[in-house]
């Protein structure tokens, strides 16, 4: 690790003020991804501001009847929170499908949004990477790219966002509460992360002096028909090759409302509202799901090693929607069989 100075923030306003100081200043919360990247010399902050003592650990009712997740509540406390389990089981399942119990005890909800890609070349200082070193090139295109993106990629970057939690948050239409020097603003989840374009060094749309204080879940009920299907190289403690968060509201066999987001395919959690529109008012049948799956991968592009993901994504979408319909989500972290 490089040398840096360490301070502890006691209030949100002070944290924001300190963050605007000169130099490479970073907030540290759980630290599970940041310290790892610092050990690899990918991140080299000159100053760390420890935000763990900020009063942002609560999970409480939001004014609109939804649920407000404090940015500093841990992933474990969130997944096993009684209200989250009851009203947003899709989120619980997605969180429990990611990382390990130790990491989930450390990682915070806010921090989860800032996870960086696990693209091998991003971690490998010996190779070019536009995300790590803008303008140096992309080694993944034409390189070993089995785990990388097929949707929304660019000539500069085909990295994927690694989070499971964020895929569920995208499907559930969460919003992110942010405080900066100019006060508070609310960001729609789909606008929080961004596509790489020709500036893949930016993972999200947050300004440098802003801090995430909470994530709000709207008061919609997707607690009966949902599935978080995660496909990976081993059944536990691995990043997704493809993950699908599917949530339905059914009236009989007719879909009143449908939500669909994918992980492991793009630079951001990939929610497809055009495909969702194809669910609305339709019967919950294989035929409907096939149409929706085809729509999602319409613009997909394979890069060789990862081309299999296009077909895999289609099948995973159909399966997740079927499981959601049947009210039998298999992504239960406790399930022992191979998905």
């Amino acid at each position: 690790m490089n040398s840096f100075t360490y301070t502890r923030a006691e209030a949100v306003e002070a944290a924001v003020r300190e963050k605007s100081a000169s130099g490479k200043v970073k907030f540290i919360a759980g630290g599970t991804n940041l310290l790892d990247l610092m050990k690899e010399n990918v991140e080299r902050p000159t100053r760390l501001i420890d935000i763990n003592r900020l009063p942002l650990t609560k999970i409480e009712a939001a004014p609109d009847g939804g649920l407000r997740l404090g940015a500093l509540a841990t992933n474990a406390d969130t997944a096993w929170n009684a209200e989250v389990e009851k009203r947003y089981p899709l989120l619980s399942q997605a969180i429990l499908a990611g990382a390990s119990p130790q990491l989930r005890n450390m990682a915070t909800n806010g921090g989860n949004l800032f996870q960086r890609t696990r693209c091998y070349y991003f971690y490998d200082l010996a190779t070019p990477c536009n995300k790590r070193e803008p303008g140096s090139g992309c080694s993944a295109i034409g390189g070993y790219n089995r785990i990388l993106g097929i949707l929304g990629t660019s000539e500069s970057c085909i990295a994927t966002h690694p989070s499971d939690m964020c895929v569920a948050l995208a499907a559930l239409a969460a919003t992110v509460r942010v405080t900066g020097k100019n006060g508070e603003r609310v960001v729609k989840f789909e606008d929080f992360h961004r596509l790489p374009g020709d500036t893949p060094q930016f993972d999200n749309t947050l300004q440098p002096d802003e801090i995430v204080t909470a994530i709000d879940l709207p008061a919609e009920d997707f607690s009966r028909h949902f599935s978080y299907l995660k496909l990976r190289d081993r059944t536990s403690y691995a990043f997704a090759l493809i993950s699908v968060a599917a949530a339905l509201q059914l009236e009989g066999n007719t879909i009143k409302e449908g939500r669909l987001a994918l992980g492991g395919v793009a630079h951001k959690p990939w929610r497809d509202t055009t495909a969702e529109a194809l669910l609305k008012g339709q019967p919950a049948t294989e035929e409907t799901f096939r149409r929706v799956a085809a729509k999602v991968v319409e613009g997909a592009k394979g890069y060789g090693h990862n081309t299999f993901k296009i077909e895999l994504a289609k099948r995973a979408i159909m399966r997740a929607l079927k499981q959601a319909t049947e009210g039998m989500p298999v992504a239960d972290a406790f399930q022992n069989s191979n998905p």
């Binding site: 360490y6 540290i28 759980g30 630290g31 599970t32 310290l35 790892d36 760390l48 420890d50 474990a76 119990p101 130790q102 990491l103 005890n105 450390m106």
Partner: peptide, 9 residues
Amino acid sequence: KRINACLTL
């Protein structure tokens, strides 16, 4: 609570 001591300061 269990944590990884290598990933915290």
